[in-house]
Design a protein around this nucleic acid. Structure first.
Lengths: 221, 221
DNA sequence: TTAATACATTTGGTGTGCCAAATTATTTTT
DNA sequence: AAAAATAATTTGGCACACCAAATGTATTAA
């Protein structure tokens, strides 16, 4: 019979890691609870357990931080997730905007040895189908932070690198607009009223909400 | 957050299916509890839930049987398990006696679509690395029952087809004796005292306990 | 400074699978 | 048929993640 503790642990660690990347000052349990779609009481309880396990530290201002070993574990899960995504896309023919949910399950499976073999089999890819970099065995991750498309300069061209929202719905929406990693777009302006953005993708004019444009990362072409 | 009910359900259904294959008359919850290494009280409770879910039927003589839909689910899990085993062996380079435990985890992951794609990617293998046949999408399984090596005739040659114990320890033990699916062996006799068997594998003389020899299935050469 | 708002924590309680131990059949033996 | 062994079931309870709602405790506005 399976042991679930790891699974919960991994889910929490990954969520904390990701939120902490966005807000390096630290996050509170409300934020974490919202991200996990759980009750704050539940999250507090679990965070305490993780603290006992020396994976998480609670600062005196109540912010939640990963310890070094917690960060290691989180990166290991992200590594698994992204390698499975590559597998699903490259080998099984899934498109880049369909792989997230499945990888969410696969990431909790198997040993490090399995993942290392998988990486080898996939030819040591540097990034997953969404353009996100894959941590190496040691947990090293080169974070080439792109700039949010929202902060673009009117008239300039950009290359889509990756996304800060990994939701398959969102990605499929972008995909339908031809917005995918590697694609070239021109920023044609922002509407000051609602901060929505317009851009041209190929010959199409596209309008994106502030939220959407904020979750698309680009590099100057 | 994950939903575990399926996982438990699947574990029970698979165990019942396998035991029922060995004893078609039906099994009791003691046998099932032993196989799952759980308390009979626990198993009884769960079996009742599975009965409510119309996956299992309790006969009046207290034997446990799968319903048609229970059998379907069990076969679907076995299909997943065996396809993942092929993946691990063929693509990631694991040897046939190392794949079971990992497949035990992978079998609970993902959708039927994923498994169908995997099957396609693997080239529609007919059997897994242990020689066991892989059920098709519909749940059809051709059970080419081999004969237990124990029942062999002295002096005759046999081809190893598969095994009725899937434990990796056991398989690795066999592997160390050059006993693997497809291997040719000669049955050289049985010791009546403890029913242990001797055979020749290549140039080696090998002795196996009654239990081991009973779990090795062969076909006349 | 007081009131309002947000956050943090505690309390009591649920569902699910699990167990040990006691009890009640049901078989076997003798 | 009585005794012994085995099987089936019930009972009460544990662990774990989870939640709603109540209660503190800060912060921010008025």
């Amino acid at each position: 019979m399976p042991h679930f503790k790891d699974l919960f642990e991994e889910t929490y660690l990954k969520a904390i890691y990701k939120l902490n990347n966005k807000s390096p000052k630290g996050i509170n349990n409300i934020t974490l609870a919202k991200a996990l779609q759980l009750n704050p009481a539940t999250v507090l309880e679990m965070v305490r357990k993780l603290t006992e396990r020396k994976l998480v530290e609670l600062q005196q201002d109540k912010t939640i931080h990963l310890t070094e070993s917690g960060r290691k574990k989180a990166l290991s899960i992200i590594r698994r997730h992204r390698l499975w995504e590559v597998f699903l896309a490259d080998k099984l023919g899934y498109s880049w905007d369909e792989v997230h949910e499945l990888a969410e399950e696969l990431e909790h499976v198997g040993s490090d040895d399995l993942i290392n073999r998988l990486e080898n089999y996939l030819g040591h890819p540097k990034s997953d189908p969404h353009g996100d970099p894959i941590p190496d065995k040691k947990g090293k991750l080169k974070e080439e932070q792109g700039m949010p498309l929202m902060n673009g300069v009117k008239g300039k061209q950009y290359i889509i690198t990756n996304f800060t929202d990994t939701n398959d719905q969102f990605l499929q929406y972008l995909s339908s607009l031809q917005i995918r990693p590697g694609a070239k777009v021109k920023f044609t302006g922002m509407n000051e009223y609602d901060r929505s953005c317009s851009l041209s993708v190929g010959k199409q004019q596209v309008h994106l909400s502030e939220k959407a444009a904020g979750n698309i990362l680009v590099q100057p072409v």
